[in-house]
Design a binder for these strands. Structure first.
Length: 554
RNA sequence: GCGGGAGUAGCUCAGUUGGUAGAGCAUUAGCCUUCCAAGCUAAGGGUCGCGGAUUCGAGUUCCGUCUCCCGCUCCA
C-alpha cells in the first residue's frame, strides 16, 4: 500500500518570520516539496540501507560475514548517539539539583544477580518438539510426567478408600500396595535423576530422561525432540585468568543494579536527601534467543536509566511526575506526535506497583521505547538481605529510618536512536520551476541532535572562495560540528548534506568577498536567506542549541 | 530453533543450455564554473558470502556451511 499526500510548506510565513527576526534578505526560490509516503516494509529496508551507506550504522564484523544482532555505529551514528546522550543527561542531571550521575562497571559481583532475580529467571533448560514446533521447559515436562504417576497413586488411594471405607489405612496401603509401590519407585527414580541433572547442569541427562520416560508433546503427541539447550539470557565470563582459580561472572543484563548497589555510596558521599535520583548511561548485554529488527533488539545495547529514591507512600505521585516529564522529553525532539503511544500496564511484575510504557511507532509497529516503573523497595530490600548491609535512609526531620521506594525511568538509547532515524527519514519529490520533478532523500533529524550542524560550501572552488570558506569554518568550528565540501555542483552538495541530515548549509559566493554576507540554506524547507558572516554564530546558536530543546521541557 | 526468500564492484542490478566478470550510479584525478542530483575526459575497485564435489573448465549444477530479511516461536 502506498499513500501519497501533498505537503506544501507555508514558505511566505517562514520568510516573514526570518525577515522580522534577523533582518535578512531572502534569496531563495519557492519550491513545491511533496513527501513521498511508502509502505512501512519498504521504509524499513531503505532506512537500513541508508544508515549503512551514509555512515550511521554498520553490521558488526562485516568483513567476516557479520555477527548476528550486533551493530557498530559509524562516523555520523556516533555523533547522533552522543547528542542523544547529552540531551538525556542534561535533562536529567544538569536540570535537576537532586539528581546525580554515576558510571558503574559492567562486571559486578555474581551475587547481585541472585538478589535481583536474574539468575533464577534468566536460566531455563529448553527443548523443542520438531513436529509441533513448540518449545517447552525440559524440567517442566519431566515434572508433569512425575505428576502423572502421583495422580495414579492418588487414584489408587481413592479407590481403596471407596472400597474399605473407614477401615482403610492409608499409611499401610501406601507401604504395601504393589501398584503404589511401583509408581512411587518410578517417581523416586525420575525425580532423583531430575534433581541431579538440574544441579549438575547435565542437559544430555535431561534429554535422556525425556526419552526414557517416553514423554510426548502434550499437543501433538510427538516424541520427536531436539536436544535440551540451556537458554541463559546473561552472558558469562570468568574473572581471573586461570581456569581453575577463576570465578564465573556475568556481563550485566541491565544497568539498574549498578545504581542500587551504589545507592548508599552516593547518598552518603553526596549528602543526598530523599527524594533524590541517580542517573546512568551504559551498556548492557542479553543473549537473546532471537534478536531481530535491526538495532531494536541487540545483544549488546545501551540504556539510559534514572532511579529516583522516595519516601514510601509518595511513590505514586513521583511516578506520575516522572511519567509526564519523560513524555515531554520525547516530544521535545519534535518527531510527529502521532508516532508516540502511551501504555499503562495492568499486569505488573512482582516488584512493581505501577508501570508505564512510552511506545513509538517504528516501521515494524508500535514498540516500547521507555519504561517508567514504580519498583517499591524490592531491589534495595533484596540487596540488604543478600549483602547483609543496611540500606536504609535516616530522615532527620521525622527521625525515622526506612528503605526508600524507587521510581525508575529506563529508556533504550539505541531504540531512541532508531526512533529518531525512522521518524526523520523522508523521500521527497520536488517540483522545479521548469516543471520537471526530482527526488531527494532527507533526514529530518532534530537540528540540536544532528551529527553535523552545518556544511560550509564555496560556490566554486576557485577565485578565493575556498579560502574564504576555510576562514569562516575556522571560526565556527569552535561552536558547531562543521563540514567543508567543494566537490561537485552546489546542488549536489546540498543533497549530500540532506542525506546525512545536516540542518544548515552556508554558501560562499563572489559577493561574499565584497559584502561579507553568505547564503544560509535550510534543510527542511530548502529556503535560503542572506546573512552577515558576523551574525552566523548567533543565528546558528538560536537554531541548533541543546538549550532550545531543554527549554521545551523546563 | 522451524518454514520461506536472498547473498555478483560502495549502491541497484544483469550475466543465455557450464567456456577467462558487465552496466548504471557512486568514488578518485583533471577540465568546465553553475544556488538545489545525474556536463566532458580518464582511472581505481570484484578469488561472484565461505568450503567442498562433479567437470578439461563452475558466478552458473550438486552437497555443506555462514550471514541478512520476512513469518512463527522465545523473551521484557
Amino acid at each position: 500500500m502506498i499513500l501519497k499526500r501533498f505537503d506544501i510548506f507555508t514558505l511566505p510565513l517562514i520568510i516573514l518570520f526570518d525577515i522580522i527576526t534577523f533582518s535578512t534578505i531572502f534569496v531563495g526560490i519557492i519550491k513545491k516539496i511533496k513527501i513521498i509516503y511508502m509502505a512501512q516494509d519498504d521504509l524499513f529496508k531503505k532506512l537500513i540501507a541508508h544508515t549503512k551507506e551514509y555512515g550511521y550504522i554498520f553490521p558488526s564484523s562485516e568483513i567476516y560475514d557479520g555477527l548476528s544482532a550486533v551493530y557498530d555505529y559509524g562516523q555520523y551514528g556516533v555523533e547522533l548517539k552522543n547528542n542523544i546522550k547529552q540531551f538525556w543527561w542534561e535533562a536529567m542531571v544538569k536540570m535537576h539539583e537532586n539528581i546525580v550521575g554515576i558510571d558503574s562497571a559492567i562486571f559486578m559481583h555474581p551475587d547481585i544477580w541472585k538478589a535481583s532475580g536474574h539468575v533464577g529467571a534468566f536460566n531455563d533448560p529448553l527443548i523443542d518438539n520438531k513436529d509441533s514446533k513448540k518449545r517447552y521447559r525440559a524440567d517442566d515436562l519431566i515434572e508433569e510426567h512425575i505428576a502423572k504417576y502421583q495422580a495414579k497413586i492418588d487414584k489408587d488411594v481413592e479407590k481403596g478408600q471407596n472400597k474399605f471405607g473407614d477401615a482403610f489405612n492409608k499409611e499401610q496401603f501406601l507401604a504395601t500396595n504393589q501398584n503404589v509401590l511401583r509408581n512411587q519407585e518410578k517417581i523416586n527414580e525420575i525425580s532423583g535423576r531430575l534433581t541431579k541433572a538440574l544441579t549438575t547442569d547435565d542437559l544430555a541427562e535431561l534429554k535422556q530422561i525425556i526419552v526414557d520416560c517416553e514423554i510426548a508433546d502434550p499437543i501433538s503427541g510427538s516424541k520427536n525432540w531436539t536436544d535440551v539447550r540451556q537458554f541463559n539470557l546473561m552472558f558469562e565470563t570468568q574473572l581471573g585468568s586461570t581456569a581453575d582459580g577463576a570465578s564465573k561472572i556475568y556481563l550485566r543484563p541491565e544497568t539498574a543494579q549498578g545504581i542500587f548497589v551504589n545507592y548508599l555510596n552516593v547518598q552518603k558521599s553526596g549528602r543526598m536527601k530523599i527524594p533524590f535520583g541517580i542517573a546512568q548511561i551504559g551498556k548492557a548485554f542479553r543473549n537473546e534467543i532471537v534478536a531481530r529488527q535491526f538495532i531494536f533488539r541487540m545483544r549488546e545495547f545501551e540504556q539510559m536509566e534514572m532511579q529516583f529514591f522516595v519516601k514510601p507512600g509518595t511513590e505514586l505521585e513521583w511516578f506520575e511526575h516522572w511519567k509526564n516529564l519523560r513524555i515531554k522529553w520525547h516530544k521535545a525532539m519534535g518527531l510527529p506526535e502521532e508516532k508516540y503511544r502511551f501504555h499503562k500496564h495492568d499486569k505488573l511484575a512482582h516488584y512493581a506497583n505501577a508501570a508505564f510504557d512510552i511506545e513509538f511507532e517504528f516501521p515494524f509497529g508500535f514498540k516500547e521505547l521507555e519504561g517508567i516503573h514504580s519498583r517499591t523497595d524490592f531491589d534495595l530490600k533484596q540487596h540488604q538481605e543478600f549483602s547483609g548491609k543496611k540500606l536504609q535512609f535516616f530522615d532527620p526531620e521525622s527521625g525515622e529510618s526506612f528503605i526508600p521506594y524507587v521510581v525508575e525511568t529506563s529508556v533504550g538509547l539505541d531504540r531512541t536512536f532508531l526512533s529518531i532515524l525512522s521518524g526523520a527519514y523522508c523521500e521527497e519529490e520536488i517540483k522545479k520551476e521548469n516543471g520537471e520533478s526530482d527526488t531527494r532523500v532527507v533526514l529530518r533529524i532534530p537540528p540540536a541532535l544532528a551529527p553535523i550542524k552545518l556544511a560550509v560550501l564555496p560556490l566554486i572552488k576557485k577565485d578565493g572562495l575556498p579560502e574564504k570558506a576555510r576562514e569562516i569554518i575556522d571560526e565556527l568550528k569552535f561552536d558547531f560540528t562543521c563540514q567543508y565540501d567543494e566537490k561537485d555542483s552546489i546542488g549536489r552538495r546540498y543533497r549530500r548534506q540532506d542525506a546525512i541530515g545536516t540542518p544548515y548549509c552556508i554558501t560562499i559566493d563572489h559577493d561574499t568577498l565584497k559584502d561579507n554576507m553568505v547564503t544560509i540554506r535550510d534543510r527542511d524547507t530548502m529556503v535560503q536567506e542572506r546573512v552577515k558572516i558576523s551574525d552566523l554564530t548567533k543565528i546558528l546558536e538560536e537554531k541548533v542549541s541543546m538549550r532550545k530543546l531543554l527549554k521545551k521541557i523546563f
